Simulated assay, not measured.
Amino acid sequence: MQIAKDLLTTTLPSITPDTSLECVFSYYEELNILSLPVIKNDKYIGMVMEQDFFDLDLSEGVKSVKLPLSNEEVSVLPTTHLYDCLRIVDEFDVEIIPVVDKENKYHGTIIVKDMMDEVARMHADQIEGSVVALRIEAIHYSLEDLSRWVESNNVKILSAFVEVDTNDAKMVIVTLKLNTMNVEAVLATFERFSMNVIFSSAFAEGKDEGRDRLDNLMRYLEL
């Protein structure tokens, strides 16, 4: 299980409210990142982001301008799960996530790009298996039922991802990673219970009907 404290970077510096604009922009250029955490007395107080500088009045020189702060509410606890960190990224559209404790003491920062690399690594390193995606009415979605049907074929669900269908808010797309390449029996079980399978990696490998299912999945996910 990955939590926030496991994702901290050691390369991104923090700055203080007294850090000069020249220094901030130097960090932006040197580190190829456009956000930095601002710390005062070991407490996180916000970020400085490149976009926050666009409306500043620099007519009297950069030394007369205070650092603009934003996203003061954006942070996670050291024990926050990786998936909740991803939710923060989606909600606030940030490229860094400060990590603080309950007293708001600053522990470090997660760089979102590095976190996404870790997500990709985690999924790539999973046990070999197949992916199956279903389109289900949200009101009828039950992971317990899906697990029972899958396990009735001596197959295990390694991971499950649920998202709202962008074409119909009453529907969800459920993507399952299974621990076997042979999913025909599972698919037959889903069919018996009138589950709408829109993608299976078994179909995608050479079967004509799989192309239609793959196209359907990509359309639903807008990939």
Rank of each mutant, 00 (worst) to 15 (best):
R135Y: 05
H123E: 15
I136A: 08
Q126E: 14
W149A: 02
V132T: 09
D145W: 07
V131Q: 01
A124F: 15
S147Q: 10
Y141C: 09
V150Q: 03
I127A: 00
V132A: 10
L143G: 04
E144L: 10
D125M: 14
I127S: 00
L134H: 04
I139P: 00
H140V: 13
V131P: 01
Y141R: 10
A124E: 14
R148K: 15
I127R: 02
E128F: 11
H123P: 02
L146W: 02
V132P: 05
G129E: 07
I127P: 01
D125H: 14
D125I: 00
A133G: 03
E144D: 02
S147T: 15
I139N: 01
E137V: 05
L134G: 05
G129I: 05
I139F: 00
V150S: 02
W149K: 09
W149M: 11
S147A: 11
L143P: 00
H123G: 04
R148A: 14
R148I: 15
E128C: 01
S147G: 12
E128S: 10
S130Q: 08
V131R: 02
R135S: 14
V131K: 04
E137S: 09
H140E: 10
A138Q: 15
D145R: 14
G129N: 08
R135K: 14
E137A: 11
S130W: 06
W149V: 14
L134E: 07
R135E: 11
R121H: 12
A138C: 12
S147H: 05
L134V: 14
I136F: 07
H140Y: 13
R121V: 14
V131C: 06
I139K: 09
L143A: 09
A133R: 03
S142T: 09
L134N: 09
V150Y: 02
E137K: 13
L143R: 06
V131M: 06
V132D: 04
W149D: 04
R135D: 11
H140P: 00
E144V: 15
V132L: 10
E151L: 04
G129F: 06
R135P: 00
S142M: 06
H123Y: 13
W149S: 00
V132Q: 04
Q126T: 05
A124R: 15
S147L: 06
Q126I: 01
E137G: 06
R148C: 03
E128P: 09
S147M: 05
I127G: 00
Y141S: 06
Y141N: 12
E137W: 11
E137H: 12
W149H: 08
H140N: 11
A138F: 04
S142W: 10
R121G: 02
H140Q: 13
I127D: 01
S130G: 03
A133V: 02
L134Q: 04
Y141P: 04
E144T: 15
V150L: 05
R135W: 05
I127N: 01
S130T: 07
D125F: 11
Y141E: 10
S147K: 10
V150R: 03
A124W: 13
Q126M: 15
V132S: 04
